[in-house]
Each structure stands twice: as structure tokens, then as C-alpha cells.
């Protein structure tokens, strides 16, 4: 059989754990398929910006992506809703059950199908943590706080909680935290926050569940269909294996970073309690109502989540 090459752009830089995991997966898949399926991993922004990868695939430049649907929130409200479940679920492991048990995967695949994309698998991404220079213990604590605005639905949630959002890039937010332009920032998981030096100034790290991003791997439908069903199976298997491996590596990295931040940098870790979780969950429903109204697809994703949450007793 002839070899099929997938040029795929990912969302983080060359040195990111996710990028390295992706490269390892590419090597494994190539071996498993006897060289029939090879993936060329392109780091974030190497070809086009994060919000333009779908268009690049449609124009035949890329063959796939490992990214976050949130980047396309402005293009399609449904992808925005799919991309971030905010405070709906207590943790991402529970949320990911929506894909497997709640019909989420079928729904997401149908949505991606509209862009001639095949969603190979959702990939694990840990909870995001807010580095802050002030102590935030509850939803009320966000009131009047100067924060960097994340993209997509998370901005809506934080605005509802009363935060004063300032739009700026990730890099600039580091300087802005040091000088005090910002009190807190939405960035990423603990490991990345610590690596980028966010906690040189910010002595608090807050788990508010303001954002629970989805990441996924998807490829051009034509290219996918050109694979033998055996190789399709191997591709999906490799994707799921990578996701499972990331659960381990990212969790370990976060734990190590947390230990380092506590002991060496004097960072205090705060997690919102049940009461605030419920408050944020209620606000999430309000955000969903707004975003669901934007399109039938978006509403379908919202409805599916609500149904699944009821079924597991979260509502």
C-alpha cells in the first residue's frame, strides 16, 4: 500500500509537552502501520494562526490539526460551546465522559463533518488555573479584578462574575502581571504557568473552574476516507493512547509544578468550594443560554450537555 502523509499543525510551541506527545504518537503510528500513515507535526503558528487551521485544511495546505475548538468560537458558536464547558463539570475526567457516554463524540463528529473534517479523538487537557497577585477565595472575589480576557465562553463567565477584563496577548500578560496592570490572568495549567514564570509575582494559584477547555485531533475527511479501515482504527487507537498518556504526564507535571511553586516560590493554592462551584455552574447555564441562542448547532451541544449532567446527577 502507498504511504499517506498528514501535515498537522498543533496549538502549542515546539517545546510543549503536548507537542512532544504528538511527535511520539506520530512515530508510533508510523511504526504501527508499517510506514503507511505518517504525520508531520508542525508547531503552533508555523503555517497559519490558531484560528485559521480549519481554513488551511479546507484549502489543502494542512491535512489536520491538534488544537482547541475554542479558537473557532468567532467562526462558529457551536465550536465555541464545544470548546469550553466552563464550570459545568467538577473536573475534566468527568467532562470527558460526556464524549464517551453522553453522545458527545457523535455530536462533535457531526459538527466537524460540516467542515469536511473527521474528529479522530478528543485529547485530554487539564483544568486551567488562575495565577493571581491577590487572594481569590470565591466567585465574589473576582469582582472588580483586572484580568486578562481569555477567548470564547470563559470571558463571558468571568465578566458575569464582575471581573474587569483586559484584552492582551499571553506574553504581554506576563509583564502586565509583574508591573501590576493585571491582578490575575487566565493562562493555562499549573505546569505551564510555573514554567512561564507567572508565579514570580503572583503568589496565588486559583482553581475556579472558570474554564475547562477541550482539545481534539481532527483531519481532512477526504484524507481520512483514503485510509484503509485498518489504518483508520490504528490512527484512532494512537490518538486515544496519546490522550491517555497525557492524562499521566500532564497530571504528573502539574503535581511537580505545584510542589515546586509551594516550596520554592511560596505560592498558595486555592480551590473554590462546593458553594462557589454551584454558583459558577449556574452562571455557566446563563452563558450557555446566550451562546445556544446563536445557532441551532450551538443549542444542540448545550442541550446534550444539560441532559448528560442531569443523567449523572449534576443538575
Amino acid at each position: 500500500a502507498q504511504a499517506t502523509e498528514f501535515k498537522m499543525q498543533t496549538f502549542l510551541g515546539a517545546n510543549a509537552s503536548t507537542t512532544k506527545a504528538f511527535e511520539a504518537m506520530a512515530a508510533q503510528l508510523k511504526e504501527d502501520t508499517g510506514g503507511e500513515v505518517s504525520i508531520t507535526v508542525l508547531p503552533g503558528k508555523a503555517v497559519v494562526g490558531a484560528g485559521e487551521t480549519i481554513d488551511a485544511i479546507q484549502n489543502g495546505l494542512l491535512d489536520g490539526q491538534y488544537t482547541a475548538p475554542s479558537y473557532f468560537a468567532g467562526k462558529d458558536a457551536a465550536l465555541g460551546v464545544l470548546g469550553d464547558t466552563l464550570a459545568a463539570y467538577p473536573d475534566s475526567v468527568t467532562r470527558d465522559r460526556w464524549f464517551t457516554e453522553g453522545g458527545g463524540l457523535e455530536l462533535a463528529r457531526a459538527l466537524y463533518g460540516k467542515y469536511d473534517l473527521y474528529l479522530v479523538c478528543p485529547v485530554h487537557w487539564p483544568s486551567e488555573q488562575i495565577p493571581s497577585t491577590v487572594e481569590i477565595k470565591s466567585v465574589e472575589g473576582l469582582e472588580g479584578l483586572k484580568m486578562r480576557a481569555p477567548g470564547g465562553l470563559a470571558s463571558d463567565l468571568l465578566s458575569r462574575a464582575g471581573a474587569s477584563l483586559v484584552t492582551m496577548g499571553v506574553g504581554e500578560s506576563v509583564t502586565a502581571m509583574e508591573t501590576g496592570v493585571l491582578d490575575a490572568t487566565d493562562l493555562a495549567n499549573v505546569a505551564l504557568n510555573v514554567a512561564l514564570g507567572m508565579h514570580n509575582q503572583a503568589k496565588y494559584s486559583v482553581l475556579a473552574r472558570h474554564s475547562m477547555a477541550v482539545t481534539e485531533m481532527s483531519v481532512s475527511m477526504d484524507k481520512w476516507n483514503s485510509l484503509s479501515s485498518e489504518n483508520q482504527g490504528k490512527f484512532e487507537e494512537a490518538c486515544n493512547a496519546m490522550s491517555a498518556a497525557l492524562v499521566k504526564t500532564l497530571t504528573a507535571e502539574d503535581a511537580a509544578a505545584e510542589a515546586k511553586a509551594k516550596s520554592e516560590m511560596g505560592v498558595t493554592f486555592i480551590a473554590f468550594g462546593d458553594e462557589d462551584a454551584a454558583k459558577f455552574r449556574k452562571m455557566t447555564t446563563e452563558v450557555w443560554n446566550d451562546w445556544g441562542a446563536k445557532s441551532a448547532d450551538a443549542q444542540a451541544v448545550v442541550d446534550s450537555h444539560k441532559a448528560f449532567m442531569t443523567s449523572i446527577g449534576l443538575n
Binding site: 510551541g13 499571553v170 506574553g171 504581554e172 514554567a195 512561564l196 514564570g197
Partner: peptide, 21 residues
């Protein structure tokens, strides 16, 4: 410092931007 080059390098290498500055 500040320097956009070091910001981009820091984000790529995943090292502390403040340390770079």
C-alpha cells in the same frame, strides 16, 4: 527588557519570561 523576541522565545521554549528579561 521588555522584549517581544524574548516573550516569543519564552512561550516557545516554555521558560520564564521574567527570568529572560
Amino acid at each position: 527588557p521588555p522584549s517581544i523576541i524574548l516573550i516569543f522565545y519564552g512561550l516557545t521554549a516554555e521558560v520564564s519570561i521574567s527570568h529572560l528579561f
